[in-house]
C-alpha cells in the first residue's frame, strides 16, 4: 500500500528528528537512574560511602566496555569468558560482575537485538573423563562453563536471508560456505543421536564431495577450525593394540548456535517433498517438543534411521 504508511513504521512516528531527539533524551536517564536504582537495591554490598552519581557513571563505563568486548569476541568467534571479562573489562572492580553483566545484557538486547547465551559445559564423553568427574565429585548438571556467546534474539520474522545474510568477513561467499558446511555436519551428527564415528563422517563427506577440499580450504583445516571455535568436538579414545577410536560430537557453540529448529529447516529443505508424518518424526528425532508433549524419542530415532 501507500509508502506513507510504510515510512511511518520506519520512523514509528513520522518525523525522524523529533523521535530521534526524544530517543536520545530518553536514553540518558534510562542508563543513569532507571537501571541504576534497581541495581542498588539488590546489591547491598556495594561501597555506600561513594556518592551514587559517581558510582553510576563508572558502571556505565564498565557496561560499555563489556558490550564492546562481547562484540569483539563474537567477531572472531571467540567465547566471551568470565575470566576475560574480569581481566579486560572489570579490572579492579571484579565484585560488580553480576550487576555489570546484567546491565550489559539489557543493552545488548535493547540496542543490538542480541544476547549473551551461556555455553553448555563440555560433556564428559569418554569413560576416563567420566570416572575422573566421579572421583572429583563434580556433577555435570551443576557446573557452569563460565563462557558465553552472542546470539540474536530477534523474532523469527526478521531472521530472513536478506536481513541476516552472511557476514562479509572473510568474504560473503566463504562465510556462507562455512556456515552451510557446519550446519550440515552438525545436522548429520545430531540426527545420528549426537555422535558420529570418524569413518561415518568421512563417508558422508565423500558423498558431499567434500572429503578433501572445501571452497575455502582443505577439509581437515576447516574441521580443525570448527573444533577450535567450538562447533564440533573430536573425541579420541585410545584402544589397546588398535587404531584410536575417533568420535565426532557437537561442540558447545554448535549446540547453542545451531538449534534443533534450524536443523529441522535444513532437513526439510534437503528432503524436498516430505512424506506425511515427516514433520512429526523429525521434531521427535531432534527432541523438539510441540506444546509440551513428551515423546518417546528412542522409538522415533529408529524410525528415522529406517527412513534413510
Amino acid at each position: 500500500m501507500p509508502p506513507q504508511r510504510r515510512r511511518r513504521t520506519g520512523h514509528h512516528e513520522g518525523e525522524d528528528d523529533n523521535t530521534r531527539h526524544r530517543r536520545q533524551s530518553k536514553r540518558a536517564p534510562e542508563s543513569d537512574d532507571g537501571s541504576g536504582a534497581s541495581e542498588n537495591e539488590d546489591e547491598q554490598d556495594i561501597d555506600m560511602d561513594r556518592p551514587a552519581g559517581a558510582d553510576n557513571t563508572s558502571d556505565d563505563q564498565l557496561v560499555k566496555k563489556l558490550v564492546r568486548y562481547a562484540l569483539a569476541c563474537e567477531y572472531a568467534r571467540i567465547p566471551i569468558k568470565r575470566d576475560g571479562i574480569r581481566d579486560k573489562v572489570l579490572g579492579t572492580q571484579a565484585r560488580s560482575f553480576r550487576r555489570v553483566f546484567d546491565a550489559a545484557q539489557e543493552q545488548l538486547q535493547k540496542v543490538f537485538g542480541m544476547e549473551m547465551a551461556e555455553l553448555p559445559v563440555r560433556e564428559k564423553r569418554t569413560l576416563k573423563d567420566k570416572q575422573k568427574a566421579v572421583k572429583r565429585g563434580t556433577s555435570q548438571a551443576s557446573a557452569s562453563s563460565r563462557q558465553y556467546i552472542l546470539i540474536s534474539c530477534l523474532p523469527k520474522e526478521y531472521r530472513t536471508q536478506p536481513v541476516i545474510g552472511p557476514s562479509r568477513i572473510p568474504s560473503t561467499a566463504d562465510e556462507a560456505a562455512y556456515v552451510a558446511f557446519y550446519t550440515i555436519v552438525i545436522s548429520l551428527i545430531t540426527l545420528s543421536s549426537g555422535e558420529l564415528s570418524d569413518m561415518k563422517l568421512r563417508r558422508y563427506l565423500t558423498r558431499l564431495n567434500a572429503s578433501q577440499n572445501l571452497p575455502m580450504d582443505k577439509t581437515d583445516n576447516v574441521l580443525q577450525k570448527l573444533i577450535r571455535q567450538g562447533y564440533l568436538d573430536k573425541i579420541v579414545e585410545r584402544v589397546e593394540g588398535d587404531e584410536d577410536a575417533i568420535t565426532w560430537c557437537v561442540g558447545p557453540r554448535g549446540r547453542v548456535e545451531v538449534s534443533p529448529q534450524s536443523i529441522a529447516q535444513v532437513v526439510s529443505e534437503v528432503w524436498g517433498d516430505p512424506p506425511d508424518d515427516f514433520d512429526k518424526k523429525l521434531e521427535k528425532s531432534l527432541g523438539i517438543r510441540r506444546t509440551g508433549q513428551a515423546s518417546n524419542t528412542n522409538r522415533d530415532m529408529e524410525g528415522q534411521e529406517d527412513d534413510e
Binding site: R23, K110, I164
Partner: peptide
C-alpha cells in the same frame, strides 16, 4: 522495556545486525 526504548524496535535491531555483519 518498550517504554524505555521508545520508538526503537525489532526492525531497527534487525537493521543494525545486518549493518554490523556487512561493515
Amino acid at each position: 522495556q518498550e517504554e524505555l526504548s521508545g520508538q526503537y524496535g525489532d526492525g531497527n535491531r534487525a537493521f543494525l545486525q545486518s549493518f554490523l555483519a556487512r561493515g
